[in-house]
Amino acid sequence: MKNIRAKDIIPVIADMCIEANHYLSLDMKERLDKAVESEESDIGKKILCQLQENLDIADKEKIPICQDTGMAVFFVDIGQDLHITDGLLSDAINEGVRKGYQEGYLRKSVVGDPIERVNTKDNTPAVIHYNIVAGDNLKITLAPKGFGSENMSKIFMLKPADGIEGVKNSILTAVREAGPNACPPMVVGVGIGGTFEKSALMAKEALTRNLNERSSIQWVKNLEEEMLEKINLLGIGPGGLGGTTTALAVNINTYATHIAGLPVAVNICCHVNRHVTRIM
């Protein structure tokens, strides 16, 4: 059995927080480059170029890509043969967030209670989703989530009879309503099936998938491609100021569901779709 000390996880998490907020993954950058080529609106093109320049400045001058450095969302895969010693994993993750957000000059955007709304001043607690897997590795993915786009996300509890057309309408409705508020061009994460909460979790996790990787299920892959095309016909464009680049990608995850239901969750992310993964 492999052992990892909780305190050795803290600096890794802190690094991840800083990295995620200053650099986007290559697939995100490539999509943006392509969009600059294909965008038909002049103002849209200008905005996309500013976004490229913004990424450059963030990287070179160590300024966060966006001032909303997000609520820290984690997906943690724990190998069932792994043992965390000398402390709790959740505590180590939160300690890492505290350290990373402090040392990385990241904004502390978390309030401790949804109604009393007092800032916790260290961006904790994080939102952590655990998954037990085979083996003895610890795989941690961090996706800091900004709330301009999070607030525009939606869940639709469709009827089975609504079928694939109902799913398509739900995705388009969410994107249309999000419009300029979600800082387009967006990345759209969708979860279809499962239960109420499972669909939302799948939609969130879909946002962390490489944008060049399509679903391995044929109908889902087709739906991802069709929805990206349709969303880009909505006219919303970069910054919501009109154009042909409204989304950079649509990633869809699916799961079994109940005979009576068809949950569809649409988690909207902005062009600052941040995520980093580390395996220990």
Partner: peptide, 25 residues
């Protein structure tokens, strides 16, 4: 432009908190 915070910060020459400093950001 939403999400261009690094770029926009370059146009800000001075910044001073004038009130409600307990509100942090």
């Amino acid at each position: 432009v939403g999400g261009a915070g690094a770029l926009l910060s370059k146009c800000i020459k001075t910044s001073e908190v004038i009130t409600y400093d307990d509100l942090g950001a």
